[in-house]
Structures are given as C-alpha cells and as structure tokens.
Design a protein around this nucleic acid. Sequence first.
DNA 1: CGTTACCTGAAA
DNA 2: TTTCAGGTAACG
Length: 281
Amino acid sequence: MPELPEVETTRRDLADRISGRTVTGVCFVAGGVSPARELGPDEFTDALVGRRIERLTRRGKYLVMHFADGGVLVLHRRMSGNLLLREPGATLDPYTRATISLDDGRELRWTDLRRFGTWRLADTPEQAIPQMGPEPLEDAWRADDLAAALKDRRAPVKAALLDQRRVAGLGNIYADESLHLARIHPRRPAGSLAPDELQRLHQAIRAVLNRALDLRGSTSSTYMDGMGERGTMQDEWRVYHRTGAPCAECGTLITRLVVAGRGTHICLKCQPPPGGTDERA
DNA sequence: CGTTACCTGAAA
DNA sequence: TTTCAGGTAACG
C-alpha cells in the first residue's frame, strides 16, 4: 500500500483544498465490497451529508478527516487505495469505488483496484485506529526508542519493522530500503542488533522516509497522490523491486527472498546474513 | 511465530 | 498459466 510518505503526500495535497468544505453527497459504485464495511451505503451517506470538513490528519498509514462536529472519517488505503480530488465533470478514474461530493462542486474519489481499503466513521480517531507505535519522523523518536521496540525479539528485524505497534508507517518498500541503507540483513533477529546497528537503522529509516516525502512517494503501479500524479521515489530505490540489478554500493546483484511472508530485496554483500550461514533466495 | 484470506488484476 | 502485488486481520 501506500506507506507513510505516500499517505502524508496525499494529506498535504488535500488538507487545504478540502478544509472548510461541506459534504453534499456520497455515492458507492455498485457491485463488490464497499470500503464502508460497517454501514450500508444509504446509512453511510446519511451519516456524512451536511457535515463540514475541518482538517485532514495522518496517523501511521491512516488518513483522518475531522468534521466540525468533532466526528471523524478514518480511511485506510491498504494495498491499492487512492483518494483523489477532482474538478466538476472530470473524466472518471479507473477503479473508482466511491465518491464524496463537496459544496464547491469538486469531488473526492476513492479508487481501489483490490478493494481492500476501508472507511470507518467514529467519534474520535482512537476509536477507529488500532494501537500504534511512535511516528518515526517526529523529533521525539530516538534510536533508543527503536532499540526498546526491538529488544528481546527473536522475530526477523524486517517483521518487527512492519509491525505497526513498534513503529508506525513503514511498509514493505521502505523496510527493505531502510535495511539496505543501514546494511542489515532482514532476517537478523530483531533483538540481536548491536548499538551501532540500531543507530544506523534509526537514521536510515528517517533518511529514507524523508527522501520519499521530498519525492512525493513511490509509484510502481497504482499509487497516486491527491491530484492523481505519480511520485518519483521509485527512481531511487536501492533494492526494492530491483531483483537481478546491481547494487549501487558494490555491484553485487540484488537478491529476492521471502521474510515475514513478504517479498524482500537485499544485497548479500552489503547485508551479510545472520549466523554466517549461507542464505539463498 | 508463520500462514492464509481478503480482491482484482498486471506482469512474467 | 503462474506468480506477484505498497496491508492487515484472523487463524493454528
């Protein structure tokens, strides 16, 4: 899915453009699973129409639309969801599953090829968002916090990075990219990292996420920002989706393996396997 | 802990 | 035809 940088890019694109607008209509495209799983389309529409959008925030990979009455609409894009703001009469976007009409005539469109994305209405964000770890781009997040989150864990460090309860917002792309930048093998037990490795990983996560934010995220197939444009971070991927291509650091060909059930991309020379044993794809 | 399920393709 | 897919929840 869109990970932290992609969700934050969308938030920045849309926040000022939809703040102050009132919802005038909601339409769910018929057929298939609706993003609003908990309420029927009519009920959901009734619950949204007439409410004024006050601001748009983000927590991990969740987008939160705050209404003037204090309630929230919490969106999660999962694998292929996008939230686009379109002008009146704009041509239809592929895989549009739902639309929210605004009082300036513009329309928010929810596109989602795989239909995994979810919308939840709640009184507060906490009601709709599960417990989640710290935001890695906040100043308050230090190497010590990462160390504490990984301490005593025997799970592969990559699995720990993908666990939103330890750090919020990392997904498969930026976990792989961060581990390569930090020169750490994804199968290393999380609790086995030395202090200097934790330091490097902490710094790498920040560097990778900040660079991705500068480049407005990564687009490989379905991701788009709030205006429907592509990000360009994919042009700087070090390992992700680069199986068989040379590592920019040492020229070794990038290997693909499966860790924590996810496709994982590494340079075996830059990221030596744990235990000295040979590791293959 | 790892695996499966959810859904619909796109790419090999 | 088969594999892979940016995420999570549920299951064993």
